[in-house]
């Protein structure tokens, strides 16, 4: 039978040519530069997809059939593995490559890549970069809610509470759902950070404590509220007065336990030296004027420091509570969205 007599000829020849070309590309793969290998594979994929070859032949000829959905699903799954194992730099490297070649990706896949880049930056404490990347996730994406939650907490870490609230308020959710209660919880936490106890009181009734993902954190938030609102600052006048009577005691009254001894250690010896100078040389003697002035500086400084210490210890206590609040905002996000 002559080849020309059959309909077999044209399609088969094209198949063999393509198969040969593909095999040649693969055989060159090891010896070529990496970019050329990848480009070659992607190019051959696009040729194959454009052609009418049957899928079985394509699968056989190529190591990977370029199914963009499967490709990005696999890559994003690998990225999650990298993030879980705290290999953030590797994850970012992979994601930036994915983004660079994301022309063939769907908008949802591009959103996923940007979201994960934002996510990695968030875990790596690069909040500004994270906000920038999370902002690029489109609003109609399925993950836009998550992106806004994460963007909001990035703003919280940057102490930009208005922006954080604005992001949360942009999220539209069904009342009573898990995410809706999470939103209320986050808004309540931000109210605490802003010391806006009225807002917290209006939000805390929505804390049902029924969702295991953040029921403990809801309870903790109520405790923080109690601690913050019931905190009674010590009197700076009393602290200063006590330090005037005996150096360091004012700081002890304010709540410090170590620094009072430091204050005594500096001020008392100077007091003794000044007293000695006044006894031996008189009040108007240069010795007393110099040593007395030196003592005076330390003495007054200690009184001033004791008066201020009541504010500084309050700030320290509140900062500690703020750190706990932010940590308790972070944990539920991981539990709710890390699936």
């Amino acid at each position: 039978m002559s080849i020309r007599d059959t309909n077999y000829f044209p399609s088969n020849v094209v198949k063999y040519i393509l198969l040969f070309a593909t095999s040649f590309i693969l055989s060159q793969a090891v010896g070529q530069s990496v970019d050329s290998v990848r480009t070659a594979i992607l190019d051959s994929v696009s040729i194959v997809e454009a052609d009418t070859l049957d899928s079985a032949m394509v699968t056989q000829a190529l190591p990977v059939k370029f199914d963009s959905t499967a490709y990005y699903t696999r890559e994003l799954s690998f990225t999650r593995y990298l993030i879980t194992s705290e290999q953030y730099q590797d994850a970012l490297f992979l994601l930036s490559r994915l983004e660079a070649e994301s022309a063939s990706a769907s908008s949802e896949q591009r959103d996923s890549i940007r979201f994960m880049m934002g996510w990695v930056n968030y875990f790596d404490q690069n909040f500004e970069e994270s906000i920038y990347l999370l902002s690029k996730v489109s609003d109609d994406s399925e993950i836009s809610t998550q992106a806004k939650f994460y963007k909001s907490i990035c703003f919280v870490y940057l102490r930009e509470y208005d922006q954080a609230k604005q992001n949360l308020n942009e999220i539209t959710l069904d009342s009573g759902s898990l995410e809706w209660e999470l939103k209320m919880f986050q808004l309540g936490a931000i109210a605490l950070l802003e010391r806006d106890y009225n807002s917290f009181d209006s939000l805390s009734p929505y804390f049902s404590e029924n969702h295991f993902q953040f029921s403990i954190e809801e309870q903790s938030m109520l405790i923080y509220h109690e601690e913050l609102s019931s905190y009674k600052r010590k009197s700076p006048w009393i602290a200063g007065g006590l330090s005037a009577l005996f150096p360091g005691i004012g700081k002890f009254y304010a709540g410090y336990r170590g620094t009072p001894f430091g204050a005594m250690y500096m001020t008392l010896p100077l007091a003794l030296v000044a007293i000695e100078a006044v006894i031996l040389a008189g009040v108007l003697s240069p010795q007393f004027l110099v040593l007395g002035a030196l003592f005076g500086v330390f003495y007054v400084g200690n009184i001033w420091g004791s008066a201020l210490s009541v504010f500084s210890i309050k700030k320290e206590i509140f900062n500690e509570i703020d750190r706990n609040i932010i940590y308790d905002m972070h944990i539920p996000l991981r539990r709710v969205f890390w699936q």
């Binding site: 090891v30 990496v34 690998f78 590797d90 490559r97």
Partner: peptide
């Protein structure tokens, strides 16, 4: 190991390391 090895041979260590990690995964 084909892709990862060729990357390593090219001196693209960061990318090669990622590809070896992918193999582990």
């Amino acid at each position: 190991f084909q892709l990862a090895d060729s990357l390593k041979d090219e001196g693209a260590f960061e990318w090669a390391a990622l590809e070896y990690e992918r193999i582990c995964f």
